Amino acid sequence: MRNALKLLPALAVAALPFGPLKAQDAVTPETVVATVNGEDITLGHMMILYANLPQQYKQIPVAQLFDGILEQLIQQEALRQSFDGTPAPSVVLSLENEERALMAASEVGEMLQGVATEEAIQQAYESRYADGTGEQEYNASHILVETEAEAQAIIEVLEEGEDFAEVAKTSSTGPSGPSGGSLGWFTAGQMVPEFEEAVMALEEGAVSEPVQTQFGWHVVKLNESRIAEAPALEEVRGEIVSELEAQAIEDHVNAITGEAEIDRPDISGVDPAILQQIDLLD
C-alpha cells in the first residue's frame, strides 16, 4: 500500500506564508483550526501529524511547517469525504492494525501509572545494592614472558623472596612492566578467560603457576579483591524505572493473554515468504 498524499516538499512548505492562530483565551489540542464540510480539524490533529513526521522535516523551523501541515489535513479530509468507493483491503487492515497498536499502547500506559513510584524505586534500589553492587572487583599484577620455562623461573625467584613489582619491572615484556606489572581494578569479563580464571582462583597476596594466554605466559599475583561500592540512586534511577516497567508490562501481558480465549489454527503449512507478497492484498 502506498500513501496517496505526502507532505509537501520541504522547500515548498518553507515558502508558505505562516499565520499564527488568532489570540484566544485558551489554545488547547481541542482548538478548531479548520472545518471541512462540517468536519472539524483540531490543533491536536496537527500535533499528531507533526509528531509523526520524518526526522528530516523536523530540522525545519516549526513555524515554516505550520501552514503546510494544516493544508495537508484539509486536503486529506476533503479527499476522504469525496471517496465513496470500497476501501482497499490493505487500507482496512492498516486501520485495524493501527487501532490495535494504539489501544494496546493506551492499555500499557494506563497500567504503568503508579508502577515506578518513589517507594518502589527505593525498594528495588535497596534490594539490588544492599551489599554494594554485588559484583566482585579484583586488583592484580602480572609478569608477562614468552615461554613457560621463563615463567617458572620467575616463580622460583619470587619464592626466594624477591619483590614482585621489582621483578616485573626488569623481566615483564607487557606494557604494565614499568609500573610493576599492576593492572589496577577490574571485574569479570574484562580479561581474557584464562587470565581471569587464574585470578579468581587465587587468595589475596598469592602468586599463580604459569598461565598461558594468547599474549604469552603470565605469572599472576592477586593483590586485593572487594565488592564494588553501590552507585548513588540517581545514577541508576532510569535503569531501575525501566526494569520495573518492563517487568510490570511482561506480567500484565502474560496475565491478560493467559485469561484470554485464544484459538491457534494449525498454520504449519503456511510458507512464511507469503508475508512479502503484499500485492495479494490488492
Rank of each mutant, 00 (worst) to 15 (best):
Q76L: 14
Q76P: 02
Q76G: 07
E77H: 01
E77R: 15
E77P: 03
A78G: 11
A78T: 13
A78Q: 13
L79Q: 13
L79V: 15
L79D: 11
L79F: 12
L79W: 11
R80I: 08
R80S: 09
Q81I: 05
Q81H: 06
Q81E: 12
Q81Y: 13
S82I: 01
S82L: 09
S82W: 03
S82Q: 15
F83V: 07
F83N: 07
D84L: 10
G85C: 02
G85D: 01
G85Y: 06
G85A: 08
G85N: 06
G85H: 07
T86E: 14
T86M: 10
A88G: 06
A88N: 07
A88F: 12
P89T: 04
P89Y: 02
P89H: 07
P89S: 02
P89M: 07
S90Y: 03
S90P: 04
S90G: 07
V91G: 00
V91Q: 05
V91L: 00
V92D: 05
L93K: 08
L93F: 12
S94E: 12
S94D: 10
S94F: 06
L95P: 00
L95N: 05
L95G: 04
E96Q: 14
E96T: 10
E96M: 15
E96G: 08
E96Y: 15
E96N: 11
N97T: 08
N97M: 12
N97F: 09
N97Q: 13
E98N: 12
E98S: 11
E98V: 03
E98P: 01
E99T: 09
E99L: 14
E99A: 10
R100G: 04
R100N: 08
A101Q: 09
A101D: 12
L102M: 11
L102N: 10
L102V: 07
M103Q: 12
M103I: 11
A104K: 11
A105L: 08
A105V: 00
A105P: 00
A105T: 02
S106A: 14
E107A: 13
E107P: 02
V108A: 10
V108G: 03
G109T: 02
E110A: 14
E110R: 15
E110V: 15
M111D: 02
M111K: 09
M111C: 07
M111P: 01
M111Q: 10
M111E: 08
L112C: 04
Q113E: 13
Q113K: 15
G114V: 06
G114F: 02
G114A: 04
V115I: 14
V115L: 05
A116W: 00
A116Q: 00
T117M: 06
T117D: 02
E118L: 09
E118Q: 12
E118P: 00
E118G: 14
E119V: 11
E119C: 00
E119N: 08
A120V: 05
A120L: 05
A120T: 01
A120K: 10
A120N: 10
A120P: 00
A120E: 08
A120M: 06
